[in-house]
C-alpha cells in the first residue's frame, strides 16, 4: 500500500536516509527499528509528507507524494494519524479538546457524540478523568498517551507511531503496545511503529525493518529478524555493546580530539 523508491533525505552533509526501498503492507504492523540517528523519525516524516525527500518517491497506491496537491494531501491525511516522538499536543487546548480536535475539525458530529468518543479514547489509554488537564500539567508519558488517543480519534486507516512507548512505565508501555497490535488486527488499521523497544517491537510486528545509518540492513517477520545471521542485527536485538555497530558515531580519533584542536568544541 505504501512504497518508497530510492528514498533519500539529506540534511546538508548528513545523510539521514539513504536510497531506501520499503514496502508497507496494508492491515499490518510494520515496526521500524534502529539506533539513535538511524533515520527513523526522518522516514516517518517523509511518509507523512511533512518533509520533502532529497530524491526518490513515496507511493500511496498509485499516488506519488511528490507533487501531490495540497487538497489531495489533506484528503490522504484525514485517513492518517500520527503520534509524534515528543507528543506535539496543542498547548493551548485541554486534554479533552486535544483529543476532540480532529473530530471537531472534520466531522459534523454532535457535541454529545464527540464527548462519548473522546471518553472512549481516553479510557483506552487509561486517562479518563484527566479531560480538564492542560498539556503543561501532564507528565511526558501521560502526554504521549494523550497524543496516542488523539491520533486514533478519527479511527484512521494508517497510523504512524514515533516511539509510542518510550517514556512510559512498563505497564503503560505494555498496554499501548498491545493496543497497537489489537487495533491493527481488529480494525484493519495499518500501523507503522518506530521503536527502540526490541522486545515489544518484535512482539507486535508483522514486518520488521531495521535501519542503520539511513539504510535498511534487514527486514522480514520477527522470526526472520530473530534468526538473522547478520552480526549487526544480532548485536542490535541483543543490545550488545560490542560488535560491528560502533556505539560512538564520531569519525575522528578520540585521542586526537582529546589532545589537539583546542577551541573546536565550544559551549555557548
Amino acid at each position: 500500500m505504501i512504497r518508497t523508491e530510492k528514498l533519500s533525505r539529506h540534511f546538508d552533509d548528513v545523510v539521514a536516509l539513504d536510497s531506501t526501498d520499503i514496502h508497507i503492507k496494508e492491515h499490518q504492523t510494520t515496526v521500524v527499528m534502529g539506533g539513535s540517528g538511524s533515520g527513523k523519525t526522518t522516514l516517518l516524516r517523509l511518509l507523512a509528507g511533512l518533509e520533502c525527500p532529497t530524491s526518490g518517491h513515496i507511493w500511496y497506491g498509485k499516488d506519488d507524494l511528490n507533487g501531490i496537491s495540497q487538497k489531495n494531501l489533506y484528503k490522504l491525511r484525514s485517513r492518517m494519524g500520527m503520534v509524534f516522538q515528543y507528543s506535539a499536543l496543542l498547548n493551548s487546548l485541554s486534554v479533552y479538546d486535544n483529543v476532540a480536535f480532529p473530530l471537531v475539525e472534520h466531522t459534523q458530529l454532535d457535541e454529545s457524540v464527540i464527548h462519548t468518543m473522546v471518553t472512549m479514547k481516553l479510557e483506552q489509554v487509561g486517562l479518563r478523568g484527566f479531560e480538564k488537564f492542560m498539556p503543561s500539567q501532564l507528565s511526558g508519558g501521560m502526554a504521549k498517551r494523550v497524543a496516542f488517543a488523539r491520533a486514533l480519534a478519527m479511527d484512521p486507516e494508517i497510523v504512524f507511531f514515533d516511539e509510542p512507548t518510550s517514556g512510559l512505565d512498563p505497564i503503560s508501555a505494555g498496554v499501548i503496545a498491545s493496543l497497537i497490535g489489537d487495533l491493527t488486527q481488529r480494525t484493519k488499521m495499518t500501523s507503522i511503529v518506530v521503536t527502540h523497544d526490541v522486545h515489544a517491537g518484535l512482539a507486535i510486528a508483522d514486518h520488521v525493518i531495521l535501519l542503520w545509518q539511513g539504510k535498511v540492513i534487514a527486514e522480514g517477520t520477527s522470526d526472520v529478524i530473530r534468526h538473522s545471521d547478520d552480526a549487526r542485527v544480532q548485536q542490535f536485538i541483543e543490545g550488545r555493546p560490542d560488535g560491528p555497530i560502533p556505539f560512538s558515531r564520531s569519525e575522528t580519533s578520540y585521542i586526537e580530539d582529546l589532545l589537539h584542536k583546542p577551541g573546536t568544541v565550544r559551549m555557548s
Binding site: 516524516r45 507523512a48 509528507g49 511533512l50 495540497q70 489533506y74 484528503k75 491525511r77 484525514s78 492518517m80 494519524g81 500520527m82 509524534f84 515528543y86 506535539a88 499536543l89 496543542l90 498547548n91 480536535f101 480532529p102 475539525e105 472534520h106
Partner: peptide
C-alpha cells in the same frame, strides 16, 4: 515559533488543518 519547535504546526498538518 514555539508551535514550530514543539511540532504543533506539524501536528496540525497531520490532522489536515492548514
Amino acid at each position: 515559533g514555539i508551535m514550530r519547535v514543539t511540532e504543533q504546526l506539524d501536528a496540525l498538518q497531520m490532522m489536515a488543518v492548514n
